[in-house]
Design a binder for these strands. Structure first.
Length: 880
DNA sequence: TAATTCGCTAGACCGA
DNA sequence: TCGGTCTAGCGAA
């Protein structure tokens, strides 16, 4: 393995490299950028607090040079709403008003926006410093002045207003430079009202956070940096070409896990074409570099991190960064990025490790987002599961207790295994980034969020930032964030959702499935649904009335429909482009990522309208969307019946037609007829034709909704809602159910299915079924003590915690029902504490396999008795 | 610092 | 011990 593989390979960075060698850190002050026009890729945005003002700084990268650009032509501001009649007087008052007796500061500008908002005049107040804005916004209510857009962080405000896109290129004129202290403005609080301090205090969330707080308490270390002053900064285009590095730690394992207590034993660092593994105090084996001490090891990490644009980890937010930071402090060595301490921020229930300028991408957060949005299909998020489920690459796990042993014993074989494991962790994280970053790069461009944010944010914040950006461009003022009381009220008043038609239970042949393309977005566009267009003043707009009785303006396009329409149309173009290129043999992943980003944001627009914490929450708008949706699907069902189709089922935007004697063309003709009567932007599509399908009867009677299985003409199965697709059922039940569905739908042979079930029951009874097929998975959604009802998974978790296992909110539990105990909960144990063969066959027969298959065979006239003991001879031919 | 509602089911819980 | 009700989790759209 090449030593220092990342360094000095580029002659242009030779100067940097020499300096780095000498000082053990890159000195940005050695950099030179000539005056004049230049292009660079935008990575980060921040602001510095100088003595007299706050100033925006952008972190950019270009041809292996990374540096800060300063834009001194932008000031923090907010809007003030004042009485129309007193406008001139208020402008005068506000411009003269001294907000603080100590600081004696005033607003630097008060501008009339020449606009009415809720019958009030809209004024823009600018301040020299962010801290001034924060003080002023707390004082304005006392002056009886309504404030708006007062809590948008300065750096974000800058990007949104200028429509600059992180991860894209910007163009600018360099007009000067200065050498300055690294001063980063303090984060702005979102509001003076502290959200739920009590809850935060209460949630101990274990040792981790305590330690990170400690880590942040330390006085921040700062260095000097060179900053280039730029004018005329604007968007440009260019490829996303950056230097990425992935790193991963292995630490000594102590009795109790606490961040930073035990030493780091090994570290791996992986780049596009190189990788290194470093350790100390152990044997030199293949692929391992040795340094003198842990301190030197940390210094090596330090050097690597300062020579990259993007740093990738797997769980670096909660482990690698807090850990290394703590160790560096204990060892008395520097651990800075771009001359500044690494900051461990609170982010929901866990942490986020923020570097200065350089973008830290935690691949674990990336996978979690993809899992939430249904973009990848993996239940567990540990790196081994991800490697296997996402890339199909088996990754061996080295357990914590093996790490000390491998390092101390100097056993060559064990050590090599650890080296390999350590390296593969970094490689896998790197691979995740390469595979999925294109998506987040596009989200960054769309929402003007940095990569750090777009890889950690919720879909609601993506939607909200996009709305803020577009609203600003259109000259619209954003609604304020709701207070906690308001949020609670909103939550108490949910809206009515979709319509689901009860299916016809039983086995059916020749089924056509139709659905509306992007139903909710297309309704938003077609009816111009937006909070500002709701119940407008024009009488003639009342013809655009929802089944709810609310109406939406037909004269002026609303913010939501405008954005949704642009995104929907753009997505169609991108999808077509991607398809076309693929046909020509070129797979352009950028097209795919762009349309994917649009899809994620588009799908969240409706949900955002009904989301209690949203600025643009609009109960009436969200409710209008679903009321129109119910109207359209019910009308379509009625039309299908008029056209003499039997409608088997329908859910939200789809309908299942029994074709009977009708042809595919008849179905197409029907869809066309429906489309003629639909608004231009709405479309009913033929989704597909299926040979057979089954709906089952509920335990309580009546046919079950959201549960069905179909088989298409090629024999491909589509199983929806059944236990087979649920993770909280064991494999033996799920696999048996799938087989039964398959035998019934494709082979039309329920007797074969019955026989198969009996075989499975036999295997269960004789104790032959392996552990892995008996495991039931459930997420621990709260702390065990917070449960009212102790279910099997909670009981299993409590027993495991008793034995010393570290489990908390969000842990995925794999448990088995054993022979030992009375109630089901008594018998539940986490998989790792259960010996092979120790399971309760009765439970798995009565509560897993039988319930999963009985409803299916029942539809064909078989009973539980038939499954348990013999049965009648009957096939599908007889059934029909 | 959480996009929405609709729907099914298991198993605990609780009173008769 | 039985049966109704409630809690909890997960999936469909």
């Amino acid at each position: 393995m090449a030593k220092n593989a990342s360094k000095a390979k580029d002659p242009k960075s030779a100067k940097q490299a020499i300096s780095a060698e000498k000082n053990n850190i890159l000195k940005i002050t050695d950099l030179s950028v000539p005056k004049g026009k230049m292009k660079a890729l935008l990575l980060d945005v921040s602001y510095a607090d100088k003595a007299d003002r706050s100033v925006i700084r952008l972190y950019v990268t270009e041809n292996k040079r990374r540096f800060w650009i300063e834009d001194d032509d932008f000031f923090p501001y907010l809007y003030a709403l004042v009485d129309l009649k007193q406008k001139e007087k208020m402008i005068q008052n506000l411009i003269e008003h001294t907000f603080s007796q100590e600081e004696k500061f005033k607003a630097i500008k008060v501008e009339d926006q020449k606009k009415e908002v809720n019958g009030k005049a809209m004024l823009k107040m600018s301040f020299a410093k962010v801290s001034h804005l924060i003080q002023a916004r707390n004082l304005l209510p006392e002056m009886g002045i309504d404030k708006r857009e007062y809590d948008i962080p300065f750096a974000k405000r800058y990007l949104l207003d200028k429509r600059l896109e992180p991860c894209n290129w910007i163009e600018m004129d360099i007009v000067g430079e200065e050498i300055a202290e690294v001063i980063e403005g303090k984060e702005e609080g979102t509001d003076n009202e502290s959200a739920s301090e009590e809850e935060e205090m209460e949630s101990d969330a274990s040792q981790k956070i305590e330690d990170d707080k400690l880590a942040n308490e330390e006085e921040e270390k700062k260095e000097k940096q060179r900053v280039f002053i730029a004018k005329n900064i604007h968007n440009a285009n260019g490829p996303f070409s950056v230097e990425m590095i992935s790193f991963d730690l292995e630490t000594h394992v102590g009795k109790k896990f606490t961040i930073g207590i035990e030493p780091i034993l090994m570290v791996s660092a992986v780049r596009e074409k190189s990788g290194r593994v470093i350790s100390y105090d152990t044997k030199e084996v293949k692929g391992l570099e040795l340094v003198e001490s842990e301190k030197e090891l940390v210094e090596e990490i330090h050097k690597e991190l300062n020579d990259a644009d993007i740093v990738i980890t797997y769980n670096g937010d909660n482990f690698d960064f807090p850990y290394t930071k703590m160790r560096a402090k204990k060892l008395g060595t520097r651990f800075l990025v771009n001359g500044k301490d690494i900051r461990i921020q609170r982010h929901g229930l866990d942490n986020a490790a923020k570097l200065f300028g350089v973008q830290h991408v935690d691949a674990f957060q990336v996978m979690r987002f993809l899992q939430r949005t249904g973009s990848v299909n993996t239940v567990k998020l540990d790196i081994e599961s991800v490697s296997e489920n996402v890339f199909g690459v088996y990754k061996e796990k080295v357990f914590p207790w093996e790490i000390n042993e491998a390092h101390e014993s100097r056993d060559e074989e064990k050590l090599e295994r650890l080296v390999d494991y350590n390296l593969k962790d970094s490689e896998t994280a790197y691979r995740i980034a390469k595979e999925f970053l294109p998506l987040f790069i596009e989200i960054s461009k769309l929402t003007s969020q940095t990569l750090f944010d777009s890889t950690r944010n919720s879909t609601s914040s993506m939607v909200e930032d996009l709305l803020l950006k577009e609203a600003h461009t259109k000259g619209l003022i954003a609604p304020n964030k709701p207070k906690e009381l308001e949020i609670r009220e909103r939550l108490l008043n949910p809206i009515k959702g979709a319509f689901v038609k009860e299916p016809v239970a039983g086995l059916h042949e020749k089924i056509a499935v139709l659905d509306f393309a992007s139903l909710y977005p297309s309704i938003i566009i077609s009816h111009n649904i937006s909070p500002e267009t709701l119940n407008c003043v024009h009488p003639e707009c009342k013809k655009n009335v929802s089944p709810d009785g609310t109406w939406f303006c037909t004269k002026e396009k609303g913010l939501f429909p405008d954005i949704v329409e642009k995104m929907l149309k753009q997505r169609l173009v991108l999808k077509a482009e991607y398809k076309k290129k693929k046909k020509e043999g070129i797979e352009d992943k950028v097209f795919f990522a762009k349309q994917w980003a649009l899809k994620i944001v588009l799908n969240s627009m409706y949900g955002y309208l009904g989301y209690g914490r949203a600025r643009w929450y609009s109960r009436d708008s969200a409710s209008a969307v679903t009321s129109w949706a119910r109207g359209y699907i019910q009308d379509t069902i009625a039309k299908a019946e008029e056209a003499e189709f039997k409608v088997l089922y329908g859910d939200t935007d789809s309908l299942f037609l029994m074709m009977g004697t009708k042809t595919k063309d008849d179905v197409g003709t029907f869809a066309e007829k429906v489309n003629k009567d639909l608004p231009e932007d709405m479309e009913l599509e033929v989704d597909g034709f299926y040979k057979r399908g089954i709906f089952v009867t509920k335990k309580e009677g009546g046919a079950a909704k959201k549960k069905y299985a179909l088989i298409d003409e090629k024999g491909a199965l589509k199983i929806v809602g059944f236990e087979y697709v649920r993770r909280d059922w064991c494999n033996v039940a799920k696999d048996t159910q799938k087989k039964v569905i398959e035998m019934v739908l494709s082979e039309g042979d329920p007797m074969k299915a019955v026989k198969f079930v009996r075989k499975v029951l036999d295997e269960l009874k004789t104790g032959k079924v392996p552990k892995k097929d008996l495991v039931i998975m459930t997420l621990l959604q709260r702390k065990p003590k917070d449960y009212d009802s102790i279910g099997p998974h909670v009981a299993a978790a409590m027993k495991a915690i008793e034995r010393g296992k570290d489990l908390g909110v969000g842990s995925m539990l794999s448990f088995i029902i054993t022979k030992n105990g009375k109630s089901i909960s008594d018998r539940a144990e986490l998989e790792e504490y259960v010996e092979e063969g120790n399971y309760d066959p009765d439970y798995y027969i009565e509560n897993q396999v039988l319930p999963a298959v009985i409803k299916i065979v029942q539809e064909l006239g078989y009973t539980k008795e038939d499954l348990l003991h013999g049965g009648k001879q009957s096939g599908l031919t007889q059934w029909f």
